[in-house]
Design a protein around this nucleic acid. Structure first.
Lengths: 251, 251
DNA sequence: CGTATAATTGACGACGGTCAAGCAAGGTGG
DNA sequence: CCACCTTGCTTGACCGTCGTCAATTATACG
């Protein structure tokens, strides 16, 4: 089910370009990476905690979640990833994985050998910066999530998550003016926000009742972006996007 | 109160060497960085959210905490830093800071211009890897903290934090066989673990009653390392230390 | 048409928060 | 040298957010 394929790098190129300005030559270098394409069904682990991969992967289509299993049976989702993201980029410089990463929708994944990444970074030092920066933005999101989980109420946490995904989808151009793909289940929201699925359901209904958004059929349509940001105590600063002026709260 | 000083780099060298093997030449390059030394009192911000520093800093002596302010009045501490750590290394590649960093004890700080870091990384590519890796280990700790805050009970969270600090202090050689410096107040533990200080106090007394440790006068003495790790659901894997065999649970 | 997944609702209880007061220790200044 | 203040730790009473358990409904799928 795996073939060589060079036509799936566009999301990755766009993602890298969203955090740092890169030249056409550098974009080409990314496009010419040796990539092993793989179609993966929903709810399958792509990599598992404890493994020591010799390749990294990026998402061409679909979504994945990075998670940790805690004292058997509980899990914490520490991040969601969308097209263009390289969820295990850290494996480039850490011996073994401290997390597992699973698809949450059927996904198209591109695997790239570490050696190929290191080589292209060697030829284009600016790409080293680009990839490093990708991992730094990931870390910034982790920090914000910690504040979210540790300090905010359930409804605020959830609104914050919706805001983040809305902005991130828009940043990679995978959104219309007010609507994004939202295939994440309430149970997955629960595992990511440190809540129970029952409480997520109730909080979500409270937010819906306020008319901030419509969330159904795997689609999130934002009706009151301003209000949703306030409800989620959200500011996109931590995402370190090169441009997000049109998405910032107008306060 | 600031002077040039080249005698405070040892903790940094040791810290970098604890995550990646570097040569004597590379160590010398670190020692010869232009450093502005600064003595800072306790509970002072070293850098603030929103700033765009042109230098990074490392801790030569003392401890700092990285934190975010959430909806005025609540704060989340997202990490503690000890001698050798470079808490705002990310500023090297992110335009502006998404966190503030404050001393929690009187500290000796070394400031290094970004330009100097970038230049030494240019001369010694392995140092790029070393610094990148430092930020990746920071991110791994963030992930573990998310799981800690999101999924574990108050006593378990706190035990986990004690385990982490014990291992990290030992990794930089700042510990005797069973004792580390522990200047963190209960209120600070609360802010880091998403708890109230009242509940931290009660949980801490519960753990003490089990005889895992003695915690007083800014010192943590571990009496039952095995038991503390079990109580904290702790495994040092996520710290990505080059050696921690002697600290792993013997199970 | 039976099964699996996801969303929803209800009842009940516990973990942990808030508010408030008291205590211990160290530093400061008159 | 000792009031005084500040900081940090401890304890009590009360309550609310959120978790657990359980059942029901809705939708998709084979």
């Amino acid at each position: 089910m795996s073939t060589m394929d060079h036509d799936i790098t566009e999301p990755l190129v766009r993602r890298i370009a969203s955090v740092i300005k890169i030249s056409e030559e550098e974009k080409s270098a990314i496009r010419e990476l040796p990539i092993r394409r793989s179609e993966i069904k929903a709810d399958q682990d792509v990599v598992r905690e404890g493994e020591s991969p010799t390749r990294m992967f990026f998402i061409a289509e679909g979504m994945t979640a990075t998670y940790k299993i805690v004292s058997d049976s509980r899990r914490q989702i520490v991040g969601f990833h969308l097209p263009g993201d390289a969820p295990d980029l850290q494996s480039l410089h850490l011996r073994s994985l401290d997390v597992s990463i699973a698809t949450i929708t059927p996904s198209t994944i591109g695997f790239v050998p570490h050696t190929a990444i290191l080589e292209v970074c060697d030829r284009f030092p600016r790409l080293t910066t680009a990839f490093w920066r990708h991992t730094l933005v990931d870390a910034a999101i982790f920090r914000e999530w910690m504040a979210n989980i540790g300090q905010r109420s359930a409804p605020t946490r959830i609104a914050h998550l919706l805001c983040e995904l809305f902005v991130r989808f828009r940043a990679v151009g995978a959104a219309t003016a007010d609507t994004i793909n939202f295939p994440i289940t309430q149970a997955e929201i629960a595992d990511s926000m440190g809540l129970s699925s029952v409480h997520v359901n109730r909080s979500l209904m409270g937010l819906r009742a306020k008319g901030y958004f419509v969330l159904q059929d795997g689609t999130l349509q934002v009706l009151d972006w301003e209000g949703l940001q306030v409800a989620g105590d959200f500011s996109p600063h931590y995402l370190h996007l090169r441009e997000f002026g049109d998405l910032a709260r107008s306060s």
